[in-house]
Amino acid sequence: TPIPCIRCNQTVKFEDLLATARDLDAEALVTGHYVRRVSRQMGAELHRAVDPQRDQSYFLFATSLAQLEFLRFPLGNLEDKSETRALADVFGLPVAAKPDSQDICFVPDGNYGQLIERLRPGTAEPGDIVDLDGRVLGRHHGIIHFTVGQRRGLGLSGPVPLYVLKLDASLGQVVVGPKAALGRRHIPIRDANWLDHLPPLDGRQVRAQIRSTHSPVPAQLAVVEGGVYAVELMTAQEAVAPGQACVIYDGERVLGGGWIARAMG
């Protein structure tokens, strides 16, 4: 289950655009992200936005400390979107009344499946929908149309609701099961980025967010040789999907995060 907005921030916005800003001898790169940059004695910190409904810190966990020093986020301290629109109107910006959009910018029609099929031929091939024991329950029209935790659109009926538990790309299978089977506590992560100015501490009590639509929940870090290796959630969370980000917080502050490698236990 990919999340391209984070990759876009890593590359197009905070590498290419930031490099251009430096080439122009700019003092800073200002963006419209709803996050806060807080200056401390040890350096800049990344914090959640004042407006929790607009907070975008989950999408910026991969920002480096060097980038954070150069970035500014003026919208992060605004109470709600109405303040943003009012300021845009004061400054005569044509987007002041522009409707909100949840679509990915390079997929304006919302047809994500068609885009993935074009980029990764074969992902739209039909296959089996199976239960945890491997029994075939139905057929699907491509695993690109499913994500872990999904309930609607399976085309199955039975005595209990079924949810997508796993996507097996090698077999072209969608594995389904009861909601109780969705819960996960142990989350290994890869390609971690650490934003704290001190190294991660094994056993540190933190809060972890596993999807952009979820709220951070209590968790504990597991560390190997100074690098974040895994997160142990205090209570099981549903829809833990490889490819999504697991972002680590200390209160309102983003400590870092990484990509969910697999869901276990």
Rank of each mutant, 00 (worst) to 15 (best):
T1E: 14
T1H: 15
P4F: 09
T20V: 15
T20L: 15
T20K: 13
L24W: 11
A28Q: 15
V30G: 12
R36L: 10
V38L: 08
Q41D: 14
A44C: 14
R48K: 15
R48P: 04
Q53H: 13
R54S: 15
L60F: 09
L60Q: 06
F61G: 00
S64M: 02
Q67H: 03
Q67V: 05
L68Q: 04
N77W: 07
S82G: 04
K98W: 05
K98N: 02
K98E: 10
S101R: 06
F106H: 10
G110D: 03
N111E: 13
E117W: 04
P121C: 10
G122L: 11
E125Y: 01
I129W: 13
V130E: 11
L132M: 07
L132Y: 00
L132I: 14
D133Q: 08
R135A: 15
G138L: 10
H140M: 05
H141W: 05
G142K: 00
G149K: 00
R151F: 07
R152F: 05
R152K: 06
S157D: 13
P161M: 14
P161W: 06
P161L: 10
P161S: 14
V164F: 10
V164S: 10
L165K: 05
S170L: 15
A181D: 15
L182F: 04
G183W: 00
G183D: 08
R185W: 00
P188H: 00
L201I: 15
V206M: 01
R207C: 04
P216Y: 06
A219I: 03
Q220R: 08
E232V: 03
A239F: 02
V240T: 05
Q244R: 09
V247I: 08
Y249E: 02
R253T: 08
W259P: 00
M264S: 14
G265E: 13
G265W: 05
